[in-house]
Each structure stands twice: as structure tokens, then as C-alpha cells.
Design a protein around this nucleic acid. Structure first.
Lengths: 202, 202, 202, 202
DNA sequence: CATGAATGAGGATTCATTCAT
DNA sequence: CATGAATGAATCCTCATTCAT
């Protein structure tokens, strides 16, 4: 039954528990018990608890996010169309890592003194930087920031709503793109004849 | 030596440390040490670590949030103007509790098994329920959800931006109101003169 | 409501809690809370937790037991009739202190390093010494020891039995007297017409 | 260094200390120190302080007592001979667990909220039920109850007496059997040729 | 008479980690 | 590959007690 896949199994269980109970409250003992192995076995595969968490992020979100960023850098990031495509790609990339994105939001306090937390934060800044204009009006900056947040939170919010995850993701992407579009055009002097965020049409 | 203000001082230090380092990683020893008292002194004033946290929330956000909700229930919540006023009032109310709002977002994993966490979650749902229409299109639901998130996150995001907190708050409120306005009109059939992000036709 | 009877009320509550939960597991906080006073108030009336317990024993069993012992010393203790009367008197005296007798048995571990524990133990030895003959056969010594135990334990044993406490006490006294009578006659050579449990040959 | 015997050594030291100082007053630190290991080492072998105690009872008295009960159920418990044999077997079984029996009596307050306490209590009831007749006279019920008590207490009473433990045990067994015999025949009408303490008729 | 505030010592328990085998 | 055994440090919490007011 056990093959070389133990490492993978550890990651699976760890992801599940980390997401469900939080980083600090998930002990290695629990992970080991749920796997039917010893704590020491975990240490054979991962140097450290932090290391275990890190491996999850690297495989599932850090890498993919970097791809999005790399793509963006090669495609005139300042054009609106590029920005929208960035959102689209990023949305797709995180949809495969729902539990980790949720984990990231719910465990920021814990991530603050983990190296991987710093790295993730950096990526978020990079992404945000690609989308928003440093000199834009404050509202527009908020819009861009909110766009990212919206895509993240749609993955684990709206619990009551019966819509399926994929639909929610698309809806969130739509709203995010709307926000970024508004931010891209807008800025500062609220354009005349505009009453909703997206309804600018000059 | 110190007078009746010890309880207050404990709360101050606790708020600071909880916000800075997170709930789980802040030990009562640290709080006590920073205050120059014994751990046991904390227990004289608060039955429990959880109790200490709870007292912070009750005083600073639970109560105020309930006032907003009460006001809303008495003022035709389904009208757009009422909704916008709810946002405005809520924005004002949380601006006095910035560190706690931040704490709430960054420690959701920890809050999950704290009674006060459940209570806060409930309030968020109530607030969201007042603003969004259960039968609206998914995008509109996302918009409303995002509106709330935006006001929260503006309090501790955009670190790079040099704008002062009050301005950020106003900008966030503006964006939030915009989102809710769009959601209010919108719903399924895109209102004339307004395009959703994805419905672009260039 | 509160008069000079506070001391008495403290003793009442303390007796109840000590008996119900044990000495070590009953904290002064609990006693104070149940009384609606502060822990410090207890310290006004009793120097110490141990002191509080001691006061209970002194008033309710130490004194009475000493009276029995004093009476015995003045009445030819070696006569059977005297012995039986000792049992009778002692039985009466402890029946007023049921909870304390129970407490004594159930908290011997705790009493071992309390001064009052030593004192009570001494009284038990004295009493036993009055009843049993140092040079009697071992079985007879056991009988006497058992007699005392029986009177004690009848106060808090036989929970299932529906008999009322007073009846139980009388029954126990009867059995105790029987045991002492046997021990008094007996010693080694089984008295005629009476067989020990194992020497049966029918 | 040490081999697989650590668990055993912990039990030995724990039994010693629990018996000597009581359950509540024996801290795991003391046990660990006396063993020359860390507290955490104890937790490797026993999940809990209570668990450690439980393991002692299970191995040394719960199991053996259950054997006696099982034997009894298979041998017409209502016959006097069977009852006497029960006493005999039970006496033998507890003589190997003297410190624990003593512990049981001296720490009843502590045992009251330990699961193992409940289990032991249940066994005592079963044993008592096998020996005494529910409908017998109260004195006879007391006699049976006393019989059990006598066997227990003989293990740690009569400290002054120089007799060796085994002799004391036998003497106690004899007295216990006598009591049960009396209870078996007796009930209300004192059997001829037998004098009880109360059967005095002068 | 009693309280409010605080202390110091100690309790059980949990955790990430190590290392010889 | 993995385990069994153990550690050291830390955690939350409770308790009896004190003392100025």
C-alpha cells in the first residue's frame, strides 16, 4: 500500500488539516495519527513543520502565481486588456488551490513569521503592482486591491449561496475585472455622468 | 500603586499584542510582562485568555455593529439609500476599531473555535443580508460581499500608499457604495449604459 | 441578613463542599462564591484553609469523641458492658457528624499532612485501645477494628438500601457490639457453640 | 539507555507515590524527578495522569476482581459455600495489590471524578450483591458490607500489631466469613446457640 | 467586617524536534 | 524508510495567601 507516495500522502493530509483547523492548532501528531505513521516519519520527509507547509505553497500557488507574473511582464502590463487577462489567468490558477488560498487568508497571523508568508505577500504585491497605477486616485487603488481580494474571498465566502464553486469564481472574476476596468479609466475627478463603479463610458 | 485602571491597561496591551503577533502566538506571560504584573493578575481581571479577547470585541466592535444593524432594521433596509447609509455608518463604526478588524481577518483560524468568533461571523452575515438580495444574480451577490470586505481590508491594506487612514477609509466607503449601488440596480439584466467586466465588446 | 453568624455560615458551606468534593478539590474561591462573599472575608474568620477544616472537626467530632474517651476511662474499660456502652455512646456522637465522618474516610490522603488528621487518628487509636485487648488473638483484634469501621461506614454506605439513616446506625451499632462481644469472649480458642467462618464442618 | 522497561518503572514509582502521598498531592513532576526523566517522558507512555492511575488499577485489581465475579456467577452464588469461596478468592486477589486497595480507601474523594473510580465502585457493588441478600434484615446487610470492608482495611490497619501481613489477611478473611455466615443464616431471628451483641437478654 | 487587587508557586498538558536503532 | 523514546520549553490556568484600604 505505501510506496514512494508517502510524501504525497503527508501533504494531502497536512493540507486538509491545516485548512480545516489552522496552522498553529494543527499538530504534527495529528497529521501523523491520521496517516497512521509516527511523527518521526514526517521528519524523514520534511525537515520541519514550516517546511511541510512551504512545500504545499510552492507546489500549488507560488509556482503558478509566478507564471502569471512572468507572463504579465512580457505583455505590456499597463494596457487594460493585459490587466484583465492577468486577472483571468490568476483566477484560473488559484481555483486549483482553493484550500490554500483560504488558508492564506485565515492564517495571516501565523504566516507573518513564516518565510513562505513573506514570499506570498511579495507575490500579492507584485500582482497588485501590475494592475494598479501607483499614481492613481486613492479610490482606484482601492478598487484594484479589492479586485484581488474579491477573487480570493469568493473561493470561501458566500457559504449560504447554493451556486457551484466554478460559477462563483467566474462571477468574482467578472466583478474583479469590472473594478480594474473602472480603475483603469477613472481616477480622481469622478467623471461626469457616472454613477456606478463601472458605468463610465467616456 | 495603580488604581482602577489596570483592567483597561491589560486590554490595551492585549489588543496591541494580539493584533501584532496573533492570538495563538501571544501568551499571557508576554502580556503580563509588558505590563509589569504577574500572569495571575490577568486572571483576576479576566477569567480566561478567551475572555480577555472577548471583552475587546464586545466593547469595540460587537456593540457598535449591533447598533448599525438595529438602525438598519428600523429604516427600510431594501431601499438603496438605506443600504448606502448602512455602509456609511458601519464604516464609521469600524474605523474606531482598526486593530480589531485587522485581527479578525488575520486570525480567523483561531476565531473559529472561539465563541466571539461565531458571534462576529453572525453579525457579518446579518450585515451582508441587509445589503444583498438573496435572489440577485451571482455577480451582484459577489459585489455586496466584496463591498464589506473592501471596507474591512482598506483599514490594513495598501501599506505602501502614503494616504492617511481616514482618506483610505473614505475611499473604501466610496467604492463599497458604488458596488452596492451596482448590485442594487443590476441583477441579471445589465442596466443600460453599464457593462459588466466581461461583457466588453471591443 | 448577615449578622455575627457569618462564621457559622462559612462553616456550613465549607462542610458541605468539603464533604461533597473533597478537601483538595474544594477551593476557597468556591466556598466564598457560594456564600456571596470574597475570599478575603474567609481569611478574616479563619487564618487558613486548614484552620477552617480544623474548626469543623473540633466542634463536631473531636470534642464529642474526647467525651466518650473520658467517660470510658472513668468506667472500668475492660468490662464488656463498658465496651458496649462505649460503642453506643460513640455511635450516638458520630451520628451528628455524618458528613465529617464520611469526609474523614474519603480524604485520609489529604488529612495525612494536616494536624487535625493526626489528632483524629490518635482518637481512633485511643478508642480502639479501649475496646480491644492488645494480647488477644489476631482475629479478635480484627473484630474490634472492624467494629469501629462498621459504625463509621454505615453512615455513608449501603446507598442502595432504602432504610433511613437512624435505622442504619442502629443496625451498625448492633453488629459492632456483636463483634466486640465475640472478641471479648473469644481469643484463640473458639468459644463453645460458636464456629468461625472457616471452621464449619456440617 | 533504559530499555522497554520504562513504562513499568513509571508505574512502580507512581504506585509508590500515589499510595504514600495521595493522588492529588502527587505531581507528575515528582514522579518524573524520582525516575530521572522528564515530565514529557511520562506523557509518552501515558496519555494523562488519570491514565497512569487507571493502568495501575486495571492491571492489579480490576482484572482480578472481575475474575472473581465471573467465577461467582458460574457457581450458584446464593449458596453459603459459594459466598465463602468468593470471600476467599477475593481476599487472595487483593492481597497482591495492597497499596492500591489502601489508595482506593484513602482517596475516594479524588476517585469520585475519575472514571476508574466509578468502575471500581461498580465492582464493589457487584461483589456485595453476590454476598448479601437484598431482602435480608438490615443488620445482615450491614454484616456483609462490613465483611468486605474488613478484608480491605485489614491490609492497612492495625499498624501497631506486629503480625505479618499474611496472617492479618487470614484473620480478616476469617472474620469476614463469619460475618457472612451469620448474615446468611440469620436475619432478624438470632439463630440459637449464637449470641450477638444485641441478643443480650439480661 | 470586608473588599479589591495582586502575588508566587505550582499544576497538568502539549508541542516541535532529535536521535539511536 | 521508519519507529520508539525522550527532551526542553512553553502554554493556560488555579490556588492559598497577603495587605492596604
Amino acid at each position: 500500500m505505501s510506496r514512494g507516495n508517502t510524501r504525497q500522502r503527508i501533504q494531502d493530509v497536512a493540507l486538509e488539516l491545516f485548512a480545516e483547523r489552522g496552522y498553529e492548532k494543527t499538530s504534527l501528531r495529528e497529521i501523523a495519527e491520521q496517516l497512521g505513521v509516527t511523527k518521526a516519519a514526517l521528519y524523514y520527509h520534511f525537515k520541519t513543520k514550516e517546511d511541510l507547509l512551504t512545500s504545499l505553497f510552492e507546489d500549488m500557488v507560488l509556482g503558478p502565481a509566478d507564471e502569471v507574473i512572468a507572463w504579465a511582464k512580457a505583455h505590456q502590463p499597463s494596457r487594460l486588456e493585459t490587466k484583465l487577462e492577468i486577472l483571468s489567468r490568476y483566477s484560473a490558477c488559484i481555483s486549483n488551490a482553493t484550500p490554500l488560498v483560504r488558508f492564506m487568508h485565515e492564517n495571516q497571523a501565523a504566516l507573518r513569521d513564516l518565510a513562505i508568508g513573506e514570499q506570498m505577500k511579495e507575490r500579492m504585491f507584485l500582482l497588485l503592482g501590475l494592475i494598479k497605477d501607483e499614481n492613481a486616485a486613492l479610490t482606484d487603488q482601492v478598487r484594484c486591491s479589492s479586485a484581488l481580494f474579491t477573487m480570493h474571498s469568493s473561493l470561501f465566502t458566500l457559504e449560504g449561496t447554493k451556486a457551484d464553486p466554478e460559477e462563483k469564481r467566474k462571477a468574482a472574476l467578472e466583478v474583479a475585472q469590472e473594478l480594474v476596468t473602472a480603475a483603469h479609466h477613472g481616477s480622481g475627478d469622478t467623471p461626469p455622468g457616472r454613477e456606478t463603479g463601472s458605468a463610465r463610458h467616456e
